[in-house]
Amino acid sequence: MSTATGVGSMPGDDLAAAQRLVLDELADHLPHLVELPDRGIHSGMVARSLALVGAIGVDLQPAGWRLTDASGIDHRRAQSRLAQDLDVLEELSQGWTGPFKVQVAGPWTLAASVEKPRGDKVVSDHGARRDLAQSLAEGVRTHVRDVRRRVGGVETLIVQVDEPALAAVAAGGIRTASGFGRHRVVHPPELSEHLGWVLEAVTAEGAVPWVHSCAPGTPLDLLRGAGAQGLSVDLGVIDATGHDALGSALEAGESVALGVVPAVDGVAPTESELVERVVRWLDMLGLDPDVVRDRLVVTPSCGMAGATPGWARRALVLAASTARHLSEA
């Protein structure tokens, strides 16, 4: 049976309401821990993942998050915000059982977003990016244990590692601090190794590692080689090489989460249109829906922080109903 989930972010600043919505609308599918970037920088994707990093110091500077000798008050605020969100999840999930998903920013997205102590991005320094990736891996281990402790009804825990910046890192597309240059390309062996540390940490704790990116040009084969057991993508930006990688993943028994529901308000497709789109895609790959439907997950095309609350609800409903119709197709 196909299932449905959200990518992670939702609109608004009411965590309890958003989390309740996800638990209700995806009750028979794959609910997830909600992220609400509208609450401020301490609730953004980067801050939430830095909240897991305890072995190195982090602080917030005018230019953004930066590694420091000791953690500052903003790092502690990010940690407190994540703990509060998990408190809310723990309360709302009482009596609930089933699979569940949490999201963390991956090592390359952090390296492309966070600065070194003296400026410029971590991605520019081999040692700094290694230390950040290894610290993130250890933080993810602790996070998985914490979620399992708080949400006792979790049967399968999926950790979605968000890597929207990985394609740019691989292509040398991350700008330097001056804005006039770009950092050097990071080559595939190192990209795979650092990502692999985080994915291995997830696996070692008995959870299932997925990698998500809605950026075009993401090297999906590299993600699989690093240990991803699920790929989450925006179907609309995948090229021929990506289609082949997704088909290979399905044939290998891995999960593929297809972003087919619009993430922001606009002309809403019907359930039948979405089902037809997925079935046509499977036909293009030469895959039988009856064989792979249990590995298919329907999602919005990307995070929904920019959507209206009404559309966010509608998108989750569409994803869930599309998954149900795929199971009957």
Rank of each mutant, 00 (worst) to 15 (best):
G253I: 03
L157Q: 05
D125E: 12
A268T: 11
H183L: 14
L136Y: 06
G12Q: 02
P99W: 07
E35W: 08
L223F: 01
A51E: 03
P262W: 07
A112P: 00
L60P: 09
R182Y: 12
C214G: 03
A133H: 00
V102T: 10
A204L: 07
K101P: 01
V151P: 04
V102F: 02
H194T: 10
G247V: 06
G259S: 07
L60F: 14
A207D: 03
V275K: 15
L26A: 14
T3K: 12
D290W: 09
V58D: 00
G179W: 12
H42K: 02
L136W: 05
A137Q: 14
V233Y: 07
V292A: 13
V261H: 09
D13G: 02
M10F: 14
R295F: 05
L50W: 01
G40D: 03
L316A: 13
D125H: 12
P262I: 10
V161C: 10
D290T: 15
S248V: 03
A305H: 03
V34Q: 07
G173S: 02
T241F: 06
Q79Y: 10
G206Q: 00
S192G: 07
E254L: 15
E328N: 03
G12P: 02
P209R: 10
S43Y: 14
G54C: 04
Q84A: 15
I158H: 11
A228D: 05
G236R: 15
V140F: 13
R182M: 06
V279P: 07
P300N: 04
M1P: 13
V256R: 03
A215Q: 09
G227D: 11
K121V: 08
A111T: 05
A263R: 07
P219E: 06
A18P: 06
V140D: 10
V298T: 08
